[in-house]
């Protein structure tokens, strides 16, 4: 009887030991999640090649009678942190261009033939998309993981990661990132204000995989303050072929308008 009790106690201790050690062996830490965010940034950054795509933005707003559609050709050279966007639609804005080099951004108006300096934090014409959203992602450098929990988003097991901006100049003070546990792909980001109010939710429902890169081919930006206000961004005609250096210049935008 005594031996049976001792055996049971040992078994219980052994089980507890294995449970704890195995759990700690598989548990993820804040630091590891920070690395996964860096991985996510890396996967959406095209440092070794150029990136070109056609981007369609469909915006809905309670004040619109019908959705507004905008279309752009985007050229990115993430290695130099450069980007050019040329408006294709609507017809009335055709030829308008945006040039970004590092933190500087200019808008070109073909009618006045003038470049105007603008900021990355401004929204793209009448949409819920910020200029900043069109550059290479820097979530891992802009935010620190301050906590996480596990959960489910639709059919996927996810880490729900609490992020805090590293300084006061990052557009959103706090974010919550929903990252798939199996492949560490971001599915959703909730952006909060300094007063901790949800401002915007960004959904990444579809991705395309090219080599080791993941491209969010559909992104939905939902304004959480104004009901019914959102913009859906879809990417197509994606190419990683080299783009001539001349494209990333003001002269190029001027030239295509001649």
């Amino acid at each position: 009887m005594m031996n049976t009790f001792k055996f049971a106690r040992r078994l219980l201790l052994a089980t507890a030991f294995f449970t704890i050690t195995s759990a700690s062996a598989f548990a993820i830490t804040n630091e590891e999640l920070q690395e996964k965010l860096s991985l996510s940034d890396y996967r959406a950054t095209f440092s070794g090649s150029d990136f070109q795509a056609t981007i369609k933005m469909v915006s809905t707003d309670p004040t619109f009678t019908e959705p507004k559609v905008r279309e752009y050709t985007q050229f990115r050279r993430d290695g130099n942190d450069a980007m050019v966007m040329v408006t294709l639609l609507p017809e009335v804005d055709k030829g308008q261009g945006k040039l970004r080099i590092d933190e500087n951004m200019w808008s070109y108006d073909p009618e006045s033939r003038n470049f105007t300096h603008t900021t990355l934090k401004e929204n793209i014409e009448g949409t819920d998309v910020k200029n900043n959203d069109m550059k290479k992602p820097t979530i891992a450098t802009d935010y620190t993981v301050v906590g996480f929990k596990e959960g489910k988003l639709g059919a996927f097991d996810v880490y729900i990661i609490d992020l805090k901006a590293v300084n006061e100049e990052v557009p959103y003070a706090f974010q919550k990132a929903y990252m798939r546990k199996d492949n560490f792909v971001l599915l959703m980001i909730q952006s909060y204000s300094l007063t901790d109010r949800l401002l915007r939710t960004t959904y990444y429902p579809t991705y395309s995989k090219i080599d080791d890169k993941y491209i969010a081919t559909t992104t939905i930006y939902k304004d959480e303050l104004v009901a019914g206000k959102q913009t859906t961004v879809t990417m197509f005609n994606i190419s990683l072929a080299p783009i001539p250096d001349t494209v990333f210049s003001k002269a190029y935008i001027e030239k295509i308008n001649k």
């Binding site: 100049e169 557009p171 959103y172 003070a173 204000s193 007063t195 401002l199 303050l225």
Partner: peptide, 13 residues
């Protein structure tokens, strides 16, 4: 609600 940016251009409400 008031949507604005802070002095450092961070979104706030």
């Amino acid at each position: 609600l008031a949507r604005m940016t802070t002095v450092t251009n961070q979104n706030n409400v």
